[in-house]
Amino acid sequence: MSEEPVIICRCNDVTEEEIVALIEEGITDIEVIKRLTRIGMGPCQGRTCIPLVQSIIARRTGKPMEEISSPTSRHPVKPVRMGVFAGEEVEE
């Protein structure tokens, strides 16, 4: 690993090192990694970080990518202002 930290999740500043540390501790379930590091919980809804974390898990555990699950996707698929839901404004 390079000396500069590698940012995996730009929303919540999670590094590759933090993900690898959890995997080495035996935590390989992406659902658990998500909740301990907060990957996938930021405004990008996991678009950037989830595939990266899945590939790290696959490489570290030797499992094929298709066996690494994805966390549940829910609405809103992109962040929406409360004022829009409340009907007080229209989205620009």
Partner: peptide, 26 residues
């Protein structure tokens, strides 16, 4: 969606500045 509307109506009444804040997860 009904809940997103309901929660936003009440939250923006209690804390008006929340109308400018994005919901990222529900």
């Amino acid at each position: 969606l009904e809940y997103a509307i309901e929660v936003s109506r009440h939250f923006t009444w209690l804390i008006p500045a929340l109308k400018y804040v994005h919901i990222v997860r529900q």
